[in-house]
Design a protein around this nucleic acid. Structure first.
Lengths: 393, 393
DNA sequence: CCGACTTGCTTCGATGACCGAGGGAAGTCG
DNA sequence: CGACTTCCCTCGGTCATCGAAGCAAGTCGG
């Protein structure tokens, strides 16, 4: 019943490969999946009959018969996506291919509690749904990335330390009820990781995707699958201690947490302490782009701090790539500092073939991840039913 | 073709469940595996016919017919196991059940190079094999744990920084040739992790097993499977920086590595610097048991340092358990300090249901892990052939 | 321009894993 | 002693996948 898992050989996997361009024909799929040609044909036929895949013309010959090109049938099918952070709500509509449409950013306060957030979410997503439908598109589902621990199975928020009232709030079901659409809810870093993995690096098996924005989180792909850990809190590096001498206490009750020295919120606070007006990560980015020395120094130091934590993670987990996403990933000095810290502190063996780069999907990566995941759910739902106790007949 | 993987439903998995006591009858297996009773019966019958499983009497009724008890047919079948560290070679014979027999420890110098090590290994294992055969047992294979990075697929050693001559040495094949037996080679922490997981905690899915001995390493179980990472170096936490002010340079070229402040070698060196004679981890343990204040302080500090690194790992990976193995795990203060550091520095969410304990299999855990893995290989080999290109017929 | 070869895709049994129904064996319990 | 439970096996049936064969539609060298 877990949201994102999919068995390697089949069904949604085929859609995925076609959607992200890894395969454009049946023959491609055969090479990619390692299945028999006959099996792939059957699978494709099912998907075509279900209206999820279309044939669209023929491709270039490679010395023999021309392949019949396959495309995802995104005939106006979209998912709504929402990416939350503590002070903003970004929304958009996501199709099977291409970027996010109709995106919008909207200030609000997550700490005001679940009910106001639910209201704001429902309001904006309803409007978005109406707008999409007016444009002739079908809305298949909703994907939401939440900046805190989420129990993805039950669709509930789990105990964010500084967000009173949120503990065990059933955001997924409440939102689904309000919108009349299936909702997929997960941690923001997890949807980012899924989006980057599936869309930009589908062949990698072990991946760490960091979301550096107002807060800091990460999503972990192990063996090609999202690693949630024992209680779904895997990837939470925001409260790792990086500077025991730091004075700022953290909401978690410790001091020197990564979040208190390297997050967008911390950088903005440090800038304000120097009488430089900065509230959002956008402000920080603007300062850095304008060459503000203080801002650049702080951002670079944040990168070093994040890199110090990631160094442990890279030695321990030995991923094929570390991807930096989130708003701050657009600040070159931060990415460069992360790179430097990793190369300096990790074993050569762990870094010699390690890719370290900014998220390829850019600022909308979170939206894309959430939306695509929701689309995948919607597509896989009718087909890949839950193995146990489902077909009553 | 990877050494330890096994698909969930079948073959070796059944043996595993019976071997570690998770299942004692066909009905148990049905409950454990979730397969149909008929399927389980077929599987068991195959294993019985192959001589790998036996029926042995009947168990207590639970209100109906008595179950026919199953046991692993370890009719004298053993694997030889070797656990290497930089100055010792521990060997023993391991059956499907029970502990290691005929164990022996033998001082030698790994840094002397691969050929002398190969000679020493072959000599002791040949003697052990002869002894086991004289006692009427059949030797099915050999499992070796090596204290450094290993490419498990090719069975070769990978670039240990301070071990000249070892890079890409094909220890597995060379040893197999010398002994005329199939050899399984893996990192020492990995075999320890496999042993502890399969034998003591088979139901856990995410697990970190630390080997604290003369060096420090760890093995990672993710989703019930060993996580080796991109290049097989996952779990290598020995070169994480924990103390930038430390003066001791590390063989890796950095300073303040965990290994230089918290390993058995480092503790022994620190004791010697205070004119307390200590060479091996056994010496350290003796001092701690005798209440030596310096030794106890150093061991406790080592535990804190290890705990500091594990805190990052626990937040990031969110395992269900952290198991401390290796010689130093017998020092209570070290385990206690690790516990303390984890509870202090991790998120409550990551530790509230986290098990932190010493390895249940004790000092022979490494041997057991290596031996059991080799037995499993030997048993699975003829049955669970590699999926592609194997049955020539 | 024409065979020979390549590539793409489909059709059609064969295979094998798994399941479920049915039933027999051997218990417990009232 | 009968009703029910538990354990296990036997026997078709379903389903996914494979491989062989073949057709379709190209390229390419003579």
């Amino acid at each position: 019943m877990t949201a994102f898992d999919e068995q390697p050989g089949s069904a949604a996997h085929v859609l995925e490969l076609v959607a992200n361009g890894s395969a454009t024909s049946r023959a491609d799929l055969v090479r990619e999946l390692g299945l028999a040609a006959s099996t792939v044909s059957v699978r494709v036929q099912e998907l075509v009959e279900a209206g999820l895949l279309t044939e669209s013309g023929e491709g270039a010959s490679r010395g023999g018969r021309r392949p019949r090109l396959l495309r995802v049938a995104d005939q106006g099918a979209v998912a709504l996506a929402a990416d939350l952070d503590s002070h903003h709500m970004r929304t958009g509509a996501v199709g099977h291919t291409g970027g996010a449409h109709d995106t919008d950013e909207h200030a609000f306060d997550l700490t005001a509690g679940p009910e106001p957030t639910l209201d704001a979410l429902a309001e904006r997503l309803s409007a978005l749904a109406a707008h999409q439908r007016a444009a002739g598109r079908t809305v298949r589902g909703v994907g939401v990335g939440f900046p805190g621990p989420v129990d993805a199975d039950s669709g509930r928020i789990v105990a964010p330390s500084r967000m009173p009232g949120w503990h065990l709030f059933p955001l997924r079901d409440r939102l689904a009820e309000r919108l009349g659409l299936p909702v997929l809810l997960d941690n923001d870093a997890n949807v980012l990781a899924l989006g980057e993995h599936r869309a930009a690096h589908p062949s990698l098996r072990h991946l760490v995707v960091v979301k550096a924005g107002r807060g800091i989180g990460s999503g972990v792909i192990s063996g090609g699958r999202l690693h949630r850990g024992a209680r779904g809190s895997a990837g939470d590096i925001s409260h790792v201690r990086v500077d025991a001498t730091a004075e700022h206490p953290c909401s978690c009750g410790n001091i020197g947490c990564l979040e208190t020295v390297a997050s967008g919120a911390a950088i903005a606070a440090a800038l304000r302490a120097r009488d430089i007006p900065a509230e959002s990560t956008a402000d920080i980015l603007r300062l850095v782009e304008n060459g503000d020395a203080h801002a650049t120094t702080l951002v670079r130091q944040a990168g070093r701090d994040i890199g110090a934590v990631l160094a442990v993670v890279v030695n321990f987990f030995n991923p094929e790539a570390v991807i930096i996403g989130g708003a701050l990933s657009r600040a070159e000095p931060l990415v460069a500092a992360v790179r430097g810290a990793l190369y300096e502190r990790c074993l050569p063996m762990a870094t010699s073939e390690l890719t370290i780069s900014a998220a390829r999907c850019g600022p909308a990566a979170g939206l894309l991840g959430a939306g695509r995941a929701a689309l995948r759910e919607a597509a896989a739902g009718p087909q890949t039913a839950c193995p146990p106790t489902r077909n009553g007949k």
